[in-house]
């Protein structure tokens, strides 16, 4: 049976994996993917907490019961928009630098 601990533990693992990816990956696409992983671990926390911590009557108090879920959907929407913008920037970077490697030399290439 699923419990809150299982969900939060999974979310924490996903988040740490995401941070690890963000900190270590040199490829900007991989960094993006790691970021997405972090977003989703947060989404998982939202939904899990919403489900377990606030067991209110779905009929009388629907809006309160759905707060976490709504947040998760908002995050997904914003993340999608952000990925669109972010990938655009990656394209532009690629055109300028000829690479999408993250390094301290970024912006110094001609």
């Amino acid at each position: 049976m699923m419990s809150l601990e299982t969900i939060l533990g999974l979310a924490a693992m996903l988040f740490v994996i995401g941070i690890f990816g963000v900190l270590t990956k040199k490829n900007i696409i991989a960094v993006f993917m790691s970021l997405e992983l972090m977003f989703n671990s947060v989404n998982l926390t939202f939904v899990g907490l919403s489900y377990f911590v606030m067991p209110v009557n779905l009929v009388t108090d629907l809006s309160t019961a759905m707060t976490g879920h709504v947040f998760a959907i908002f995050v997904i929407a914003v993340a999608a928009a952000e990925v669109a913008v972010g990938l655009g920037i990656v394209f532009a970077l690629y055109r300028v630098n000829g690479s999408i490697e993250l390094s301290s030399d970024i912006g110094r290439a001609t």
Binding site: L23, L102, S104
Partner: peptide, 10 residues
Amino acid sequence: QNGNVQFYTF
């Protein structure tokens, strides 16, 4: 201040 964003993030 080495300009490495990942280091900053770390």
